[in-house]
Simulated assay, not measured.
Amino acid sequence: MITVRYFAAAAEAAGVDTEQLPAGSAAQVRSAMVSAHGAALEQVLGRCSLLADGTRVDGADPVPAGATLDVLPPFAGG
C-alpha cells in the first residue's frame, strides 16, 4: 500500500486529504484514484504533479509499497 496525500483542489475533488491505495505504476495509482473519486478528481489530476517521496512520477514510473504520493495542483504565486 501507499499513502496518497491530496492538496488544495485535489483534496476538494477527492473529498479526502489522505488515503491508502495499492502500489503500482503512477498510471495505475492514478486510475485507482479516479475509480475511487470520479470525474471531478480526474479533471483536476490533469493539472496535477505527482510526487512519490519527493520525486516526480508519471506513466510507467513506479510508486513502490510504503511510498507517500503527493498530489499537487498548480499553486498561484511565486
Rank of each mutant, 00 (worst) to 15 (best):
I2R: 08
T3L: 04
Y6R: 13
Y6D: 07
F7P: 03
A9Y: 13
A10G: 11
A10F: 00
A11I: 10
A11V: 06
A13T: 07
A14H: 14
A14S: 09
G15V: 13
G15E: 12
V16A: 03
V16I: 10
D17T: 15
T18H: 08
T18W: 04
E19D: 11
Q20M: 07
A23H: 11
G24I: 08
G24L: 05
V29F: 00
R30Q: 08
S31T: 14
S31V: 11
A32H: 06
M33I: 02
V34Q: 06
V34Y: 00
S35Y: 06
S35L: 04
A36S: 08
A36N: 09
A40K: 15
A40W: 04
E42P: 09
Q43A: 14
L45A: 01
G46W: 02
G46I: 04
R47G: 08
S49I: 13
L50E: 09
L51Y: 03
G54D: 06
T55H: 11
R56P: 09
D58C: 02
G59H: 11
A60R: 15
D61Q: 14
P62Q: 14
V63R: 04
V63S: 05
P64F: 01
A65I: 10
A67G: 05
T68C: 01
T68Q: 05
L69V: 12
L72F: 03
L72G: 09
P73C: 01
P73I: 00
A76D: 03
A76Y: 12
G77M: 04
